[in-house]
Design a protein around this nucleic acid. Structure first.
Lengths: 118, 118
DNA sequence: CCTTAGACGTAGATTGTCTACTGCTAGTTC
DNA sequence: GAACTAGCAGTAGACAATCTACGTCTAAGG
């Protein structure tokens, strides 16, 4: 049985999923299921995106124009909806990436303040 | 007038405020207003906590036992509720700090994947 | 007296994620 | 051919944290 240990798993912070999806699609077009797996694999199994978060997020991103979707056939010979970045999506990814690093920086200032020079 | 430019300002990610508050109180007891100012100052004005987020968060933290509050008098001679970390709060801060760095790490794996060794 | 700043607070909207389902198809195994 | 598993898409509803936009009271300074 060896039930997968959920201990290591991290919940996402609200607002980061869109960036992860956009980033994943930078590797190339992919269907929803594959995106979820890619995020999990790339993150060393730390990040798992539930389908109940993933699909609404994908629809959201399409609606905002960051992604385009087309039906196709997956490697496993199943019907699948392939998503790809639009140019607006690429721009959005840059913004989100920037915001994320700013946020990490700002957090760092508080969590690990620079030692006062004497 | 020189309206404060809000451009640089970052919205918080949901789930990080508690950590910021706990961390700020590691410097010593402080009242709500002061905590908000400290976060803003320490973060180089990047992070601003609105009072509508701050006070509910403080009450939440007290309810969960991470903080204790006592009324006192501020430096400006105003009545003020001073918060301080409980030992449970200190433990919680460690957990949140750990979770945060894990999350940053996991995000990094996706946003900046390690170059495949040849 | 009036204004500004310090201090505490609530109400309601919004947003995004989670849990927990459903449904359908292809391939494998018995 | 029946049953099962894995791949793939999706929705409904709960929930939690933040935001905007208010309101109230007090002290200090002009």
């Amino acid at each position: 049985m060896t039930k997968t240990p959920d201990d290591r798993r991290l919940d996402l912070l609200q607002g980061t999923l869109d960036m992860l999806i956009l980033r994943t699609l930078q590797w190339g077009p992919c269907h929803g299921h594959g995106i979820g797996q890619a995020i999990r694999a790339q993150s060393d199994d730390l990040l798992r995106v539930e389908t109940g978060s993933l699909y609404p997020a994908l629809h959201r991103l399409v609606k905002r124009g960051w992604l385009k979707a087309d039906w196709g056939i997956s490697e496993a010979n199943q019907r699948a909806k392939y998503y790809r970045l639009t140019s607006a999506g690429k721009a959005q990814l840059l913004r989100e990436r920037d915001r994320w690093s700013q946020l990490v920086h700002a957090m760092g200032l508080i969590m690990n303040p620079a030692p006062r020079k004497e």
